[in-house]
Design a protein around this nucleic acid. Structure first.
Length: 298
DNA sequence: CCGCAGCCTCCCCT
DNA sequence: AAGGGGAGGCTGC
């Protein structure tokens, strides 16, 4: 499964002009490691990604990113910079994480140096993580793809944006079940209905404090603590959010001695221990444990 | 407040 | 080779 773009005419490759320290691995982990679900690796080694009505290609030149876009797509450099959330500078974020006293975190940070948290459109992050329960990354990508193709706008021939929540509000649960969403179909239709009655929902979430925003999101059907934290971290710039899934729960149990802790307790521990940028720490740990898991499987 | 089954569907394992 | 168990959660009991 890839985004075929052979027939498209692209702008020339240009530097993004941001001071990044990506490696192949940390770029792959950032784009395709479970925070975003609409990036594909091309045969040339570049990545094609979609958010909103945007379609861009990025590639690594040393540790820096270059980007280009199909000529008929109007995304500009500022929007790409915002998506990659280059503010504040990476070194400042890294400096605030407690790696000096946390050997476990330090190890993960070495292995995935350059890893970042993206800033996706909140509505799209919410949608993807609403579908994420009891699903693996490839399955979530597939569901996003199917939904986009069926209900989204065509950005360039054959490539579709995710539908807006306004559009989703006009889709029946039955139709979504036919799209393989399973029991998540009900979450989507009910959430779409609630959002339709609250036009300012997303902007209010983005402006609220972390705690307020989390509570607001958790009122939506299908949104518990984990899904809310993912939406907040990846879609609302709430970088103190510390999503706890089963992988992270295992890491906290084995690496931090927090066996049998409740998920909410682990999330609170994560925010307290890792601080203002706990979400990035979570992503480092997540990448590290996932790598280890795949290593033992292969 | 806590613990647990059920939920769609698919994958993995035996 | 077919069939059961469980998966990157949430909800209702």
């Amino acid at each position: 499964m890839h985004y075929s773009s052979e027939s498209l005419v692209f702008t020339p490759w240009r530097s993004l002009g941001a001071n990044t320290s990506f490696s192949d691995r940390s770029l792959a982990e950032t784009l395709d490691g479970g925070q975003a679900f609409r990036w594909r690796l091309n045969e040339s080694g570049s990545w094609t990604g979609i958010w909103g009505q945007n379609l861009v290609e990025v590639c690594l030149q040393g540790e820096r990113l270059e980007w280009r876009r199909p000529k008929q797509v109007s995304v500009n450099r500022e929007e790409v910079l915002r998506y990659f959330a280059f503010d504040p500078p990476y070194e400042e974020i890294i400096d605030e994480l407690p790696w000096r006293s946390d050997r476990f975190l330090a190890n993960a940070m070495e292995r995935f140096h350059g890893l970042r948290i993206l800033r996706q459109p909140l509505g799209e992050a919410l949608f993807a993580f609403l579908l994420s329960t009891v699903k693996s990354i490839p399955q979530i990508k597939e569901l996003c793809e199917l939904t986009a193709k069926k209900y989204g706008e065509e950005i360039v021939p054959g490539i579709y944006a995710l539908p807006t929540w306004e559009r989703l509000a006009r889709v029946s649960e039955k139709e979504l079940r036919a799209l393989k969403l399973g029991y998540r179909a009900k979450y989507v239709t009910q959430t779409a209905r609630m959002l339709a009655e609250e036009p300012d929902f997303f902007s209010e979430v983005e402006e609220a404090t972390y705690e307020q925003a989390r509570g607001k999101l958790m009122k939506l059907p299908g949104v518990g603590g984990k899904v809310a934290d993912c939406a907040l971290l990846f879609g609302a710039g709430k970088r103190e959010a510390f999503p706890v899934d089963t992988w992270i729960a295992k890491v906290m149990a084995s690496g931090y001695g927090l066996k049998d802790w409740r998920l909410e307790q682990l999330a609170a521990f994560g925010r307290a221990h890792f601080g203002r940028f706990a979400g990035l720490a979570q992503q480092f740990l997540f990448s590290a444990v996932r790598e280890k898991q795949q290593g033992t499987k292969a």
